[in-house]
Each structure stands twice: as structure tokens, then as C-alpha cells.
Amino acid sequence: MSKNFLNFIITIIVAIILSQFLPWWSVMIAGYVTALFFSLKRVAVFLVPFMAIFLFWVVYAFWLGNSNNFILAKKIAILLPLQGNAYFLLLLTGIVGGLAAGVAALFGKQCSLLVKR
């Protein structure tokens, strides 16, 4: 299994577990911790956890919204404003979660280098 894929899967699993009892920043911890133990290279350091949490949040949000015809998502997409388009809100949700995880992973990577040194 490639290291990228392993990191991707572990990030999602850690995020899912932590989200049960921690606030939204649990995805930052997931990105950070995974980067500590499954060190990646170059742009993958950011991109893999980004994709992982992007996927996690988008799928989770889609699952919640879809069961309710996205009634609220459409309204929030007026509020934010995203032209009332629920898919834009899903996209934004994924990007926000992904960014948080990716940034934390960059820091995790630096910490892991520190330990190795």
C-alpha cells in the first residue's frame, strides 16, 4: 500500500473517531497526528489530508442534507452567499475541512522532522 493512500485512510479514520467527541478542530488533530506518523513528501503533505477530510466532510454533509432534500443547505447557501446552491455549500464545506486538516498536517510534518533529527 502506498504511503499516500495509507495516510489518506488513517486521516479519515482518526477524524471520524475524534469527531464523535471533539469539536470541528478534530480534523486538524487528525491531519496533524497522521502527518506525525505517516510522513509524506512535497505537495502530498498538504494534499493528501486535504483530500481525505474534503471527502469525509462532503460525504457526511451530503448524507445529512440528502435525507432532508437540502432544505437548510439551500438557505445557508443564500446566507453565505453561494447563490442558494447546496452543492456550492457542500464544496465549501469540504474545502474548509480540507484546508484545516492540510495546514495542521504541514505542521505535523515539521514536528516529525524535528523528532527524527
Partner: peptide, 17 residues
């Protein structure tokens, strides 16, 4: 925005009766 859009605790949880 992170808190708000987080599907586990944010507004997506209000997508329900």
C-alpha cells in the same frame, strides 16, 4: 466557518425535522 460547516456539529446537523 469551520465550526459552522462541520458536518458533525455544525449546521448540517440541523438538516432534519
Amino acid at each position: 466557518i469551520g465550526k459552522f460547516l462541520n458536518p458533525a456539529q455544525g449546521i448540517w446537523k440541523n438538516e432534519t425535522d
